[in-house]
Write a protein that binds this DNA or RNA. Structure first.
Length: 169
DNA sequence: TCAGTGATTAGG
DNA sequence: CTAATCACTGAG
């Protein structure tokens, strides 16, 4: 199947996020081994104005890659234990990302990275050219639902209640 | 419901 | 330098 190209990722995060549902995440899990997972749940984080987005405080060493044009990997470490896998979207200079919350094999974003070995070394990886992580299209029909984002109670009523979590169903 | 765990960040 | 915070998970 075809690897998703640059044009897929450089669109607005609210277009890209739901379209990632059902697509295939491919990760190198051994010297010559690649694992494939169907993406089942994601969340959209959209720009400095989004009070739930890491970029709400502007550019920092951690959020730097979010300002790159879409197609890069943004990973960060949280709660002292877990790596979170995100996909940068949008044009250069507009910090947006999609958190990959789950696959058909993994419930929860921390479990996904723990099981696949995704860690800080993936920060900045280019999904359109990397030899160890990318996403493939498949011609399955896309069906999804929307809900509120999880774990962002600090962001205030307006942003907390955005229906920017998308999941298969 | 709630503790664990340590990088990240803002502030002094 | 200090201290608060955190896009989570698993146990009870």
């Amino acid at each position: 199947m075809a690897r998703l190209d640059r044009n897929f990722y450089t669109r607005d995060v609210l277009e890209v996020a739901p379209e990632l549902i059902g697509k295939t995440l491919v990760v190198k899990t051994g010297s010559k081994t690649f694992s494939r997972f169907q993406i089942t749940e994601v969340e959209a984080y959209r720009g400095e104005e989004d009070k739930a987005c890491h970029a709400r405080k502007g550019r920092t060493p951690r959020t730097g890659v979010m300002y790159h044009e879409g197609g890069r990997v943004y990973v960060y470490f949280v709660y002292g234990m877990y790596w979170m896998l995100n996909i940068v979207t949008g044009p250069e200079g507009d910090p947006q990302a999609v958190l990959i919350r789950g696959t058909a094999r993994h419930k929860g974003p921390g479990i996904l990275t723990r099981e696949t070995g995704i860690n800080g070394s993936f920060y900045g990886e280019d999904l359109t050219g990397s030899d160890r992580i990318w996403i493939e299209d498949n011609n399955n029909p896309i069906k999804y639902k929307a809900g509120k984002r999880i774990g962002i109670d600090y962001s205030g009523e307006e942003w907390k209640n955005k229906m920017w979590r998308f999941y298969m169903g």
